[in-house]
Simulated assay, not measured.
Amino acid sequence: MLKRRIGRLGYEGSVVMFGAASLGNVTQEEADESISFALKHDINHFDTAASYGDAELRMGPIISGVRGDIFLATKTGERSKAKAKEEIYRSMERMKVDNVDLLQLHAVGTLEELDRCTEKGGALEAALEARDEGIVKAIGITGHGHQAPATHLEALRRFPFETVLLPLNYYMYSMPEYRAAFDALMREALKQDTAVRVIKAVAKAPWGEQQKRNYATWYEPFDQQEVIDACVHFVLSFPGVAGFASAGDIHLFPKIVDAVERFGSMNDEEAARILSSISGYTSIFESPTSIA
């Protein structure tokens, strides 16, 4: 399993993160099987969130037993200090652990959300307290949508977050404004040695209104192995990307892991040829009037 350093934290994490959103609505048996598969394939980078349904509960039985062998990250979507602190403690209890390697301020994809998190009495203060108490080792930020890169660039000006987590895929990076904003964030992240971790690598498009939803993801994912291979090649071709989260469905996970284990067997031109020829490939997020 290919590993990359998670920024200035120095941890060598598997480039594919076990995206625990996939455990939100599965049985304990299914969760155990998926987590065991990850560990068997030397995946040591696990990422979850308080808002992912029962994911933290499903992780607890196995994760608590291998806590010292993995990089464990969770998130709080609360915006006030008091509520965020409650959620952080709840996450520890649900996962049966005493600490996490990374606590992320979740879904901070606009400047308005960033303002709420960083204002006096905001969620950032809860994260700082939790770090002082030793239950959180590092603090990161996540965001969805087209404004995420610019928002996270501003976030790094306000506070030295150890990680950022935001969307990246072939289609979104082909959008000139998103590409410019993402590249600007990457440059600043490199300066600060902040780990850039990405999501939605295998997202194809929003679900159609009458479309049969075969997966638990809130968007239509790619499921053909060759296309997944190309998607994985694309995001991992960025040397500054520390890792990417697997899609939110346990049935796609083995295909994604397979693609990572064969990374390097496809070249940039082949990946671009495959991804540029796909009909219906688009952004899963609504386009704003501006991402600045």
Rank of each mutant, 00 (worst) to 15 (best):
E270T: 12
D183T: 00
F182I: 00
E209R: 14
R116C: 02
E129T: 12
A38D: 00
I284E: 11
F46I: 10
P239S: 11
I35D: 04
Q28I: 10
L57N: 11
D42A: 06
A245F: 00
N44R: 07
P160N: 06
L168T: 04
G140P: 09
A49C: 05
R58K: 15
A82F: 15
V164T: 15
V136F: 04
N99T: 13
Q211T: 08
R158S: 09
E286Q: 02
Y171S: 12
G145W: 05
T282W: 03
M172W: 01
I141C: 10
A242K: 02
F222I: 12
A292N: 14
M59R: 09
M186E: 10
R213P: 05
A205N: 09
A205M: 06
E209L: 14
G77W: 14
E56I: 10
E87F: 07
I278E: 04
A245G: 04
S246L: 00
T217S: 12
S246W: 01
F285G: 08
I199S: 11
E162K: 06
E226G: 04
V260P: 07
F238T: 09
Y219Q: 09
G240V: 06
A50G: 12
S279V: 15
G145R: 08
V16S: 06
S237F: 04
F161R: 00
S34I: 01
